[in-house]
Design a protein around this nucleic acid. Structure first.
Length: 459
RNA sequence: UCCUCGGUAGCUCAAUCGGCAGAGCAUCCGGCUGUUAACCGGGUGGUUGUUGGUUCGAAUCCAACCCGAGGAGCCA
């Protein structure tokens, strides 16, 4: 392994391997580097659960196989102590771990650091305590699994878009104005001029597609909403594809291919993580094209039929509230609608008045627009929102006026309709809502390493 | 901003009508060769969120405030 070592030295220090590689080293003496995740002492037999970041495995220390000093050291080991363990890899069906089935029959142990008393025990804790200890909580197996699924989702997003000829063109985070008003923006000082943390890259995406055809931006986005629920973060990640020469129907086809690919990739690559999370993957296996599509009119009818029948919102004690045609759906409405389907469901043609100024009105019925939201099953809410954008310069100017937005802030955006304007569409997918749905986690704060919620930005 | 629930040992919780603040886990000591959040025996551990009030007596009742949770609205 190390060409500088003599053969004698190589024999004296066994190779360092990862827990993932153990199956290929059965019967060989190896060293693992990691942290003590848990320990069960049974007199002269000590079971150590070792994590190395990519897996968990058991090291068995029998008093007769190590020196008296090392055995005493093992008895004193504290949770999360960092260490190197050397021993022979054995296949044993009794061995727990990720992946399980292999254990290390320890012959030596080097303590790197004896950890101070670790606050998080392998048992139940309250949310407040765990959130305060987020910097440690991420070591726990459930959090570890969730963040690994998140990484898969990020890879799947980039792979699918790159493979389908979307160019990654990232958009600014410091912006002088919002796409849809300024009520939920974080304001900062740009050398004496007010600026805002971006809550979408969409307007810039629309400039970029006229240069590159199909683009996406992917990064953090910021909402200063006073939302304190399991479905909201102040800082979250969003991927926003935008496509030239694409109408609403084309957009929905792209979205269902994209979302299905993400889900199927997680099933392929994160079986162990989803099993550890006790996720019922039968819901996820069904997530393949095509997804059901319902018109806003039909969605209103579904909600009001349920409201008239006194049905409850799935998962809650509250009745489904009635809705007037023309209003936007609230969370209880979305939860009810999504529960009527066993796949994500598109709701399209929302009322023009409740949607953003740039969405293209339906030419037959201008009171509704070519917008579409994708609602995730099982109460995870809206995971994408998108629309066909206004391509006509006069309609766009009228839309900006109708929404009382400052015309001069949009001069460059209006420009885009003067130089080769085309039918175009785009959407944004919320990364954390998608990961939370795939993992089945109760709260969005678990699917990002260091969440920023209305209540907290520490640690 | 509004509504609901909560704050007791390091952690998770209990404490009947207002009457000695207590368990499990963690930690410490002892025991155990197959444990999976082991088990058995023993020890340590308290300004009951804060301030004020009622009372012979307050974790418990009252008031204000602080902190947390998740729901509405808004949104991905």
């Amino acid at each position: 392994m190390n060409e500088n070592s003599s053969s004698n030295e190589a024999a004296a220090s066994p190779p360092v391997i990862t827990i993932r590689q153990m199956a290929a080293h059965v019967g060989e003496e190896v060293t693992l580097e990691g942290w003590l995740y848990g320990k069960t002492g049974k007199g002269r037999l000590q079971f150590l659960q070792i994590r190395d970041g990519a897996g968990i495995c058991q090291a068995v220390v029998f008093k007769g196989n190590v020196s008296a000093e090392i055995f005493e050291l093992v008895r004193q080991l504290t949770q999360e102590s960092s260490l190197r363990v050397t021993g022979v890899v054995k296949a044993d069906a009794r061995a727990p771990g990720i992946p399980g089935g292999y254990e290390l029959d320890a012959s030596g142990l080097e303590l790197v650091q004896l950890a101070a008393e670790y606050p998080i025990q392998p048992k139940e804790h309250g949310v407040e305590f765990l959130v305060k200890n987020r910097h440690l909580w991420i070591r726990s197996s459930r959090q570890w699994a969730v963040l690994r699924v998140r990484a898969t989702v990020v890879r799947a997003i980039r792979d699918w878009l790159d493979r389908n000829d979307f160019l990654n063109v990232d958009t600014p985070i410091l912006t002088p104005n919002a796409a849809e008003g300024t009520t939920t923006l974080f304001e900062i000082d740009f050398h004496g001029e007010p600026a805002y943390l971006a809550q979408t890259g969409q307007l810039y995406n629309e400039a970029n597609i006229l240069a590159f055809g199909k683009v996406y931006c992917f990064g953090p986005t910021f909402r200063a909403e006073k939302s304190k629920t399991r479905r909201h973060l102040q800082e979250f990640w969003m991927v926003e594809p935008e496509i030239a020469f694409c109408d609403l129907g084309g957009l929905m086809e792209i979205e269902e291919q994209f979302v299905s690919h993400i889900v199927q990739r997680c099933l392929e690559q994160n079986g162990e993580e989803l099993a550890l999370l006790e996720r019922d993957t039968s819901y996820l296996e069904r997530v393949t094209p095509s997804f059901p599509r319902i018109h806003y009119d039909e969605a209103v009818a579904i909600v009001n039929r349920a409201a008239d029948a006194g049905e409850l919102v799935p998962g809650y004690d509250d009745k489904v509230p009635h809705i007037e045609w023309g209003a936007d759906f609230g969370s209880p409405h979305e939860t009810y609608i999504a529960a009527q389907f066993d796949k994500p469901v598109f709701v399209h043609h929302y009322p023009t008045q409740v949607k953003a100024f740039y969405m293209e009105p339906d030419p037959e019925r201008p009171e509704v627009c070519r917008s579409v939201d994708l609602l995730a099953p099982e109460g995870y809410g809206e995971i994408t929102g998108g629309s066909e954008r206004m391509a006509d310069v006069d309609k766009l100017v009228a839309g900006i006026k109708a929404h009382d937005l400052p015309m001069d802030a949009y001069d460059w955006y209006i420009d885009l309709r003067k130089y080769g304007s085309v039918v175009h569409s785009g959407f944004g997918l919320g990364l954390e809502r998608t990961v939370a749905w795939i993992c089945g986690t109760a709260h969005l704060r678990e699917v990002i390493a260091f969440p920023r919620t209305l209540g907290s930005m520490r640690p």
